[in-house]
Simulated scan of single mutants.
Amino acid sequence: MNAITLGCACGHTRLEVQGAPILVSECLCDSCRAAAARLAALPGAASLLTPYGATASAEYRKDRIRFLSGAERLGEFRLTPDAGSRRVVARCCNTPLFLEMKGAHWLSLYLQLWPPAARPRPTLRTMTGDLDDASALPDDLPNLKTHTVAFYAKLFAAWVGMGFRNPKIEVAEKIDA
């Protein structure tokens, strides 16, 4: 299985991902757009948003990701204290690394972690129904109003492949953005 090493902007936090992602998508949900805007305001952080406001990510099984360095520098951001999702940031340079949904067996690794030439290409846009007007979106990918059965089927198949395990990722620091 092929592996690629990814890292934060300053290089202190590095992780390795094995194999191909479960899927590669761009999300336009209200939560992802709001979190991306708030994370971009952190000192030294870059925006996660595409020109049309999506957050692009590659969904990977947690058992195919390992931290090589910098795990002690991870910080979590939640839109609200009881939010079911968290965004994890490398605090050394405030690079957003991934989104984790509560109870999920996968991580959505932000595509800006890859060098542009090696970056996986999204195959769909999802949650366009959260936009006031989705007509301005490019038509280069399917623009889906919500997550589809096929989307969830891919995630479920990955969970089966993991033996229904859900590895935990410890993050000590909380981020207020």
Rank of each mutant, 00 (worst) to 15 (best):
W159N: 04
T128N: 14
A134L: 12
L39M: 00
C8H: 01
S25C: 06
A40L: 04
A177L: 13
M127Q: 15
H12A: 14
L28Y: 15
G53Y: 10
T55S: 05
P120R: 01
D139Q: 14
P122H: 07
D130L: 04
D63W: 01
G129K: 12
A104V: 02
R73Y: 13
F156V: 06
L137F: 10
C29L: 10
M101A: 14
E59G: 03
N143W: 10
A40G: 04
L6H: 06
L49Q: 07
S47N: 03
R121V: 10
Y152R: 10
V171S: 04
S25Y: 10
T80N: 12
R38K: 13
A45E: 01
Y60A: 09
H12L: 15
V88P: 00
H105E: 05
T55P: 01
N2S: 14
E100Q: 15
F156T: 13
L137Q: 03
S69G: 12
R14N: 09
L124T: 07
R61L: 09
T50W: 04
K145W: 09
N2E: 15
C10Y: 01
F77E: 00
H147Y: 12
L113Q: 12
V89L: 04
K62F: 13
R66Q: 13
G11H: 07
D140H: 07
P81E: 01
T50D: 00
K168R: 14
H105S: 10
D132S: 15
W114N: 09
L68N: 02
E173T: 11
L137P: 13
R64D: 05
K62A: 01
R78L: 03
F151N: 14
A172T: 14
L79E: 05
E173P: 04
Q18N: 08
A158P: 14
E173Q: 14
P116M: 05
F164C: 08
P116D: 11
G11K: 05
V160T: 09
I169A: 03
P142Q: 03
E100G: 12
S57I: 02
F164K: 04
Y60V: 01
F77T: 01
I175Y: 02
R73I: 00
I175A: 08
F67M: 00
T80P: 06
V24I: 06
A157E: 15
D140S: 11
D176Q: 15
D63R: 00
D130F: 07
P21Y: 02
E100W: 07
L99V: 09
A54K: 11
P51D: 03
G161Q: 07
L48M: 01
I4T: 15
G44T: 00
V160N: 08
D30E: 12
R38D: 12
W106C: 09
T126S: 15
L79T: 03
S47R: 06
G129S: 12
L23N: 09
E72S: 11
L49V: 08
G70W: 00
A104R: 09
E16C: 02
D63L: 06
I175V: 10
L131A: 05
A153F: 06
A36G: 12
L48Q: 03
K168Q: 14
L79G: 13
E59F: 00
A58T: 02
L155W: 02
P43F: 01
K145N: 14
K62S: 00
H12Y: 14
S31C: 08
P21D: 11
E72V: 02
G11Q: 06
T50L: 06
R87W: 09
S108N: 15
G7T: 00
A3F: 11
K174Y: 04
T95M: 03
R66E: 15
Q18S: 07
I22R: 10
C29W: 00
